[in-house]
């Protein structure tokens, strides 16, 4: 099926199989920030934005995304770098695999609610798994970011 995807503002036209998912399409197109984790929409590492809404790309059919706006971490790198500096300062990353998914979730949250409290942040991030940590580093970094970085 012929589809046109608008990825980070640029148009991409190609043929897609009806059961191809955005995760595979985006990685084929070079958007490697989007990771394959659980493949069941449970872990959050494949999170992207479609029309501004946070979605799991492993469960979103490419054909369904025809003519829709898709945002990956590559498209919000400035915003991600700003938050990422706080992640670095708190030593959040161990393997780093979950970080892009966390970033996409945070960016989606701040787009919806520019001034959430930490409980709202924790609720919003409940769908992002980190196998390395106990999430304390992420929470410290986010609180520091919200406290003075924004």
């Amino acid at each position: 099926m012929e589809v046109t995807l608008i990825i980070n503002g640029d148009h991409y036209g190609f043929s897609a199989e009806p059961d191809e998912v955005l995760l595979d399409t985006l990685r084929k197109l070079g958007f490697k920030s989007v990771k394959r984790g659980c493949d069941t929409a449970s872990c959050g590492v494949c999170n992207i934005l479609v029309d501004g809404k946070l979605v799991p790309s492993c469960a979103f059919l490419t054909v369904r995304a025809n003519r829709r706006n898709i945002t990956t971490l590559e498209g919000v790198s400035k915003q991600a770098e700003e938050i990422g500096n706080f992640f670095m300062a708190e030593g959040v990353e161990q393997c780093g695999f979950c970080t892009p998914g966390h970033m996409m979730s945070l960016i989606a949250l701040f787009n919806e609610n520019p001034h959430p409290d930490i409980e709202t942040v924790k609720h919003y991030l409940a769908g992002n798994m980190c196998r390395c940590s106990g999430y304390e580093g992420q929470h410290r970094a986010i609180e520091a970011f919200m406290g003075g970085g924004k």
Binding site: A41, V55, A59
Partner: peptide, 8 residues
């Protein structure tokens, strides 16, 4: 599930 799933 998470927010991403609840958006779909």
């Amino acid at each position: 599930a998470g927010v991403a799933v609840r958006n779909m």
